[in-house]
Design a protein around this nucleic acid. Structure first.
Length: 252
DNA sequence: ATTGAGACCTGTCGGC
DNA sequence: TGCCGACAGGTCTCAA
């Protein structure tokens, strides 16, 4: 899409998680994609008009880039680009999102403007994590899912990071910081674990992997804990509406 | 202000 | 084999 122009835009279904803004198609048509960006789980295409096309895949969304556009079930939006490629947005569950924001709307966006640091950036470290968790009465699990604490972690990677850091998902978020907000040792372990888990996941996206080895704890209720010398078995419970998997023995 | 629960929607899977 | 309920990797809103 980068450097290409929207020749035509087909809305095959205009009710994703939110409705498309007025004149969505007209405002895209003829514009060039100046830049493609990502913030947390949001994709942003900055257009020659100054507007930004904001996209989110939800739980089941995906894009397909093709030279000759096919149509498959659940294709909701198709961009025909001047490069000769078509870009199809497919989303069975329709939790995805597309919006078109003016520069003013982008700057004031309620969700985007409140997002925490990117977990793989230098801005995210033990000190930043501790500061964000300071005084939080909620669980570590809920805190890490809160996109204002750290941006872009979902349920699986929160579960995996807590396991690697040997921290219980049930533990109070505030306990990784001192009362003044300085990082305790747990904050260093957790920040490092988050980076490791994400880097590993990204490295694996380009390689074939065995489905069964994707995760260390996620979806492994009842299995032996894989931490060396730990005799625990993986427990499962619901927190804040999401499923946590953890070892009650080595995660404290 | 913070927190948890419910809502959104469809596909898949396990159990009967 | 077929039906049915439970559940799913994410936000977002609302009410306590």
């Amino acid at each position: 899409m980068k450097g290409a122009r929207f020749v035509s835009v087909v809305l095959r279904r205009a009710d994703l998680r939110t409705a498309f803004p007025p004149r969505f198609v007209a405002r895209l048509k003829g514009r060039t994609v100046a830049r493609l960006d990502r913030r947390a789980k949001y994709l942003l295409a900055v257009l020659s008009s100054g507007d930004t096309l904001l996209m989110h895949l939800g739980m089941s969304g995906s894009f397909r880039v093709e030279r000759a556009a096919r149509t498959v079930p659940h294709d909701h939006v198709v961009f025909h680009m001047s490069s000769g490629r078509s870009v199809s947005f497919n989303d069975p569950r329709r939790f995805g999102l597309m919006d078109l924001l003016t520069p003013r709307q982008l700057a004031a966006h309620a969700t985007l403007s409140r997002l925490g640091p990117e977990p793989l950036s230098a801005a995210f470290d033990a000190a930043a994590l501790a500061r964000a968790c300071r005084g939080k009465k909620t669980s570590l699990k809920a805190a890490l899912l809160d996109q204002r604490v750290v941006a872009g972690l979902g349920n699986i990677y929160v579960v995996e990071a807590l396991y690697l850091a040997r921290l219980s998902p049930l533990r109070r978020a505030s306990t990784i910081a001192t009362p003044s907000g300085a990082p305790r040792p747990a904050a260093f372990r957790l920040a490092a674990a988050i980076k490791t888990v994400l880097e590993d996941a990204i490295a694996r996206t380009s390689k074939p992997y065995r489905q069964s080895d994707r995760f260390q704890v996620y979806d492994r209720a009842g299995e032996r804990c894989r931490t060396p010398r730990c005799m625990g078995s993986i427990a499962q419970r619901t927190q804040a509406g999401r499923t946590s998997y953890y070892c009650p023995v080595c995660q404290r």
